[in-house]
Design a protein around this nucleic acid. Structure first.
Lengths: 358, 358
DNA sequence: CTGAAAGCGCTTACAG
DNA sequence: CTGAAAGCGCTTACAG
């Protein structure tokens, strides 16, 4: 009655209620040390005798003790919540990135919170900073195109929020970047098209807001240049990374006095739009027009003929991003990733062939 | 020096540091009441004089005070985290459900945590219960097919975790269900096909694990029965809700001595697989085979001809699910949804036409 | 190397 | 209707 620790069990050593979760106090009592020492072991703050540490770790393991996330967050003023901040329109990209992040987070106490955003919102920066502060997010992962927004990054730095940006080129110091080198994939696409013998080659670039649009165009030009080829002005169109814009650009290209024999679309959505334009014109892929996309979206293998495209290891990128983020700021929780840069690869399928004239 | 409240500001009323966030103690001091009274107002526990409440609310508004989520969760033993537990293979479904949930959560302090799962995992139930207990999730939202798992639901009840299940039919008491009535959509598909004059009608059903597969078959049969039609055994195939399975079933149907003139695929993925089979056989959609899908996935409008299919308001379902979940257990945070049941609708496009023989 | 005290920002009985 | 005390389960200076 006078011992506050023996609330629902008389015996001391066995004072571990079955269903109830242990606290750091229970562990301390079981190990015969103070809470502070247990805390030190859990947080690997060193300065604990090996013997003491081992004894505590044994008990922690035995009872599968995990510190309460909310209590910890309250005391540390920092949660174990990681937010994915994204304005990605491609659902497959979103799901793959999430899967990758969750792969990286498996077996840890970190949780993934999803925070889509809209770059058009006038209160975007304030909203993001406010939620980070209020929820005490451990850090955030940013995908294109919001990852390319330097003003947002400035705000994140200001509130000292750890972040990792996923983008086509390096925009930041390496510890904050996953680079996807879209440039390289686009150059590969160019070489493939040139190798097939095409000379009248078009490109439908993505919107200015996406750095990837610029990079894919740049890489494509470099790849063509290796064959002394280039994209002439009338063959260079601008789409919006949407199916509809791809279709319209496709129609425009096909209505040219001399239509191109091959087109590299900035992403698969637009590439599929070009298929549509080809069909509507009563023409065929790849006989009348070779098409290359970028993304390797599911539709690339659903459509007929299957789309030659460039693949990015998106799930792997998610895993790497979270490893980078966590290992930078909690080096005991996670190993740093072996590489922070990934390479796109060309997947050749049925939508590309030699031009029929050749 | 002797007043602990005046840490970085001498004046009392203005003792509100700019960047720092206010706590309930600050609000109490500003309002000249105790923390407990502020807490009562925030939690709407009544028993506060109107005058006092108004004064406090005014200050809460003025300083935009929001209680600390971790402190609250620690004291209440319950967080404001809502988990989406899902084994949905369709990325568009996942993204749409998430968007809907986030719509419902906008302007609240609830956060969405994503927890994909694998029904094959032997430790699935334990893993889910453990994470719920440890993170003190406010509640969970379940999508097909995991939402159809009664054993999991039993475990959730056991640990008293609030949940909402999204499923084709009612499997639970109404306060825990969003019903999607796949049955109704499938019956519509049947009527449409029958109306066009088809008599040799096939169905590719989904896997047993999905209740939706059963319901879509059931609804389809009922719709056909209204026209005194039925699906004969040789025209009833089983797929796996995947593109490949749809293609194989399509090939099987086309190789029949008397192939069907129309097929209702259990989802769009399989429907697109049938397109592929038709093309490989050198035939055409819809001239040689009419095809109807289910989902209205993005690909439905990308493929040629565009796919006649059944649409479910998935984003709306997500919003409704979260409204139901939160309003059931925190009636001040959210209004209950106006309806907990949604209806599928048939979208007629180019993949269906009268049979060529007619 | 280890611990007692105070604190993170809330809420829950218990008084009054 | 309102408040002082204790507690949720952790960690942070500060001692020793």
């Amino acid at each position: 009655m006078t011992d506050p620790d023996s609330d629902d069990n008389g015996s001391k050593a066995a004072a571990v209620p079955a269903g109830k979760k242990l606290t750091i106090t229970d562990i301390a009592r079981l190990a015969g040390v103070s809470k502070k020492t247990v805390s030190r072991v859990i947080n690997r703050s060193g300065l604990v005798r090996d013997e003491t540490r081992d004894k505590i770790l044994k008990i922690v393991d035995e009872y599968d003790f995990q510190p309460d996330p909310q209590a910890r967050a309250l005391a540390l003023r920092r949660s174990h919540l990681i937010a994915l901040i994204s304005d990605q329109p491609n659902p497959q990209y979103v799901v793959d990135i999430q899967s990758g992040i969750l792969d990286g987070l498996a077996e840890t106490s970190y949780q993934l919170v999803v925070r889509p955003c809209d770059r058009e919102s006038p209160t975007l920066y304030d909203d993001i900073c406010e939620i980070i502060r209020h929820q005490k997010f451990f850090g955030v992962i940013l995908t294109p195109s919001i990852s390319e927004d330097d003003e947002l990054i400035g705000r994140l730095r200001q509130i000292e929020c750890p972040y990792v940006r996923i983008a086509a080129v390096s925009l930041d110091s390496p510890e904050n970047m996953i680079e996807t080198h879209d440039y390289v994939g686009a150059a590969e696409a160019a070489r493939h098209i040139a190798d097939l013998g095409h000379r009248d080659i078009a490109h439908i670039r993505g919107p200015d807001m996406f750095l990837s649009a610029k990079e894919r165009l740049r890489g494509f030009r470099v790849g063509l240049a290796e064959y002394s080829l280039s994209v002439t002005d009338e063959y260079l169109l601008r789409g919006g990374y949407t199916f509809e814009s791809g279709m319209h650009c496709g129609e425009e290209l096909l209505s040219l006095p001399k239509p191109p024999t091959a087109v590299f679309a900035g992403n698969d959505e637009m590439a599929v739009g070009v298929y549509q334009a080809v069909r509507r014109a009563g023409l065929r892929v790849p006989e009348d027009l070779s098409i290359v996309g970028f993304d390797d979206a599911p539709i690339a293998t659903r459509i007929w003929p299957m789309l030659t495209t460039v693949r990015l290891p998106i799930r792997y990128m998610g895993r790497t991003a979270v490893q980078l983020l966590v290992s930078n700021h909690d080096r005991f929780a996670m190993e740093p990733p072996s590489a922070t840069s990934v390479m796109p690869s060309l997947i050749v399928r049925g939508s590309t062939a030699a031009p029929s004239g050749s």
